[in-house]
Design a binder for these strands. Structure first.
Lengths: 157, 157
DNA sequence: TTTGATAATGAAAACCATTTTCATTAAGGA
DNA sequence: TCCTTAATGAAAATGGTTTTCATTATCAAA
């Protein structure tokens, strides 16, 4: 098996242990679902998926686990203003990815866009540096959202 | 009285009437508070302020009024992820202003920054145009937030 | 000015995503 | 294997927001 590859029960083993957390069935199941899913799952979404395969894992555990994963930086907690949080796998140890979204204010559809991102990221990095210095913030992340009305919702008139 | 100035009970009179809404004490009070306040008030904040001067105005009305104002575009509803919505006066008929924030993930402090905004806005306008075309979105607004840890919270260790 | 349709309101109850409580179970170092 | 204590599920609590419903108030029309 090539070096550098994840093996056994996944690369997150070490992260849990190293931080004093225990590796449990529920946590593995949740990480498994999250890592294989398209983004933007709510706690309930995750619970439903988990529950079919591991009926013993409850919604409370889903919430608690998402909290832990969030604080470990393995998962991002997002908010699109529809009253429930969404969670997104942080794409493994190779690093974060972007939170640049297009949000329909009528049907709450979310589009992750990657167009134009290069220029944006460059500017954001500069801004981040400038703001960090001026306000003495340790900036770790950013979010860009454009709000509007999507094609279907415009059509509905 | 010079032309163009707001008079009587405020420029919003016309907007209400024009949309079939009635002008009530509660609505005036809320608009009054909002237009004079620093931004980022929660519904509760507004309710407390209102209640001292107009004890007859209830929290329910505050929520309902904020909804109406929001849908009229007179107020922006913001979400900083602390579980409660914040509201911000849309700065009158001369136009919106920016939603570029620095958010401390530990104490939830929000800083509105205006530094670096010119470059940002220019890039955002381009992106907005490009995204709007590609995804057929009618984009009306945007939000940029940088997340990090503020000076005090870093100090706490 | 009075009248009348109906929009707006307050109080209380309902809602619902999330968190807490608490007794029980299980991970994993010794 | 044992033992400390982290993790768990179920149920209750929390807290921001919305709904219900009977009452009140706005304002266009007479």
């Amino acid at each position: 098996m090539p070096r550098g590859e994840c093996r056994g029960q996944g690369w997150w083993h070490g992260k849990f242990r190293g931080c004093g957390y225990r590796l449990t069935l529920g946590r593995e199941a949740i990480l498994d679902i999250l890592s294989k899913s398209e983004s933007h799952l709510s706690a309930e979404d995750i619970y439903v998926k988990i529950h079919t395969r591991y009926p013993s894992v409850g919604l409370t555990t889903v919430y608690r686990t998402l909290d832990v994963l969030s604080s470990l930086g393995m998962v991002y907690k997002l908010d699109f203003g529809d009253g429930r949080s969404r969670y997104e796998f942080a794409e493994g140890p190779k690093g974060a990815h972007h939170h640049h979204h297009l949000v329909c204010t009528q049907c709450n559809k979310i589009i992750d866009y990657t167009d134009f991102i290069d220029d944006e990221v460059e500017l954001l990095n500069q801004t981040e540096k400038g703001l960090g210095q001026k306000y003495k913030f340790k900036i770790t992340n950013h979010l860009i959202q454009f709000y509007g009305v999507c094609e279907e919702c415009s059509g509905k008139k």
